[in-house]
Amino acid sequence: MPPPGHAVKRGALRRNLTGHAFFFPFLVVFVIGVAAPLAYAFRLSLYEDRMIGGTVFVGFDNYSKALSDQLFSAGLVRVALFFAIQVPLMLTLSLLAALAIDSGRLRGAGLFRVGIFVPYAVPGVVAALMWGYMYGKRFGLSAELSDLLGTELPDLLGPDWMLASIGNVVTWSYVGYNMMILYAALRAIPEELYEAAEMDGAGAFRTAWSIKLPALKPALLLATTFSVIGSFQLFNEPSILSALAPASVPTNYTPNLYAYNLAFNGRQFNYSAAIAVVLGVVTVFVAYLVQLATARRERMQ
């Protein structure tokens, strides 16, 4: 860039000021709502508050404790497993739904779209409660199905099935949301590409494979990133279902639940803050890995 003249500089300054004025409200909200709590949580995590002995500065002790805490790592492994299985399943369903609507061959596409999206409008807590009652092995839907089929269905709220049951609630809630992200991306594909494909004699499936899917990559990446966050921060569903099946959801079931229980049952706010910070870092790291993997694959192509 050439060195700017005096006048240009002043103009730039004014432009900058205007820019800053527009930016300021966001900055205030960001600092109060995001930066300050994060900084505060970090500060909290450097102390230890004991019932006997009061508050003392302990440096990174809480972090070294967190890293060797098997209860914490068990929760992390559980949500990682959840992410590895539930997210691909959910995104595949979302993708199929989006492609179906976009194909234009669906009758009542509007209704279909709304129908799949509606669960997203149901608050997560309500969804978990609703499903929880359906899972009930004595009076719920699962019980009635058992009676109807004359066999004993597995206990969906038992320890073996709990993660799958939670996965089902989350999938039910978010398929529609992810479908909308993907569908919006599909609508953004220029018409010319379809025309060109048609000229080349591509059928519907070939079009979907060679045009739609590649065009969906950024949207899929976005949806996956959201899902990383959603999986690692899993809280509502296990928390609600634990009331119906306490033994199936131990206090360290997910890292967030663990942090919550440490803080509110154990009053270990400081250690809980350290857990929260570590969890945040892990989430960012996994989200970054997802992006990196996608970027690398693109470069290879």
């Binding site: 709590p37 505060y40 949580a41 909290l44 608050p123 807590v125 409660l129 809280f235 509502n236 928390s239 609600i240 009331a243 919550y260 803080a263 509110f264 706010f269 803050a273």
Partner: peptide
């Protein structure tokens, strides 16, 4: 039932 719903808010407020 409201416990968990307000949990997140409470965490912040408490902090």
């Amino acid at each position: 039932r409201s416990t968990s719903m307000t949990a997140a808010v409470t965490v912040a407020a408490l902090a």
